[in-house]
């Protein structure tokens, strides 16, 4: 089997996972199932990163999105009163607004995809993945050091906010 065919088959499976998972999230009546579908969707994205030879990003996606954020979402569902067993209704009276927003977003994304001339990296740039991680570290602490530090401040703020909110509701 030539490489291309394998790649296309894998890509098709991943797309099925990602889009099918996304469809499952919005269509399943049980919230826990919805969250599990979300995990499936995240797993598809992990696969995309692997196909793009971005091993570090794939591992981070798996670690953060499936290993941490999905668990947080599952906890949130399990800890919310009455969300666990009750089967939620799938729509409310604002469905047409949502539809409008979705269509608009799709149009904007499609236009952007169409208009922008995406630069394709030459093969040399992807020479060695372990060099890439080292480069990433050097870039993060060199030109991009401000975003690097600001990100951690952002996380600190998020944590403070979360602790305050959670404490208040408990007392």
């Amino acid at each position: 089997m030539p490489t291309n065919v394998v790649q296309i088959v894998v890509f098709a499976i991943l797309t099925l996972m990602t889009l099918g998972g996304g469809l499952g999230v919005v269509s399943s009546r049980n919230l826990f199932h919805g969250a599990l579908f979300l995990v499936l969707s995240f797993a598809g994205v992990v696969g995309y990163y692997v196909l793009l030879d971005a091993g570090f990003l794939a591992a981070v996606q798996l670690l953060i999105y499936i290993g941490a954020i999905a668990i947080l979402i599952l906890f949130a569902i399990m800890l919310s009163r009455g969300l666990m067993s009750q089967r939620q209704s799938q729509r409310n009276e604002q469905w047409w607004i949502a539809l409008l927003v979705v269509v608009l977003t799709f149009v904007v994304l499609a236009v952007v995809l169409w208009q922008v001339d995406w630069p394709v990296a030459s093969d040399q740039a992807l020479a060695s993945p372990s060099v890439a991680i080292s480069q990433l570290g050097q870039e993060l602490l060199g030109p991009y050091v401000i975003p690097f530090e600001v990100a951690s401040v952002l996380l600190l703020v998020a944590l403070v906010g979360a602790v305050i909110l959670a404490r208040e509701t408990e007392t």
Binding site: F56, V60, L63, I64, S130, I133, S134, Q135, L136, G137, Q138, L140, L141, F148, A151, S152
Partner: peptide, 9 residues
């Protein structure tokens, strides 16, 4: 995760 690339480099 932010610290890992730093550690490698």
């Amino acid at each position: 995760v932010f610290l890992l690339p730093w550690a490698v480099a």
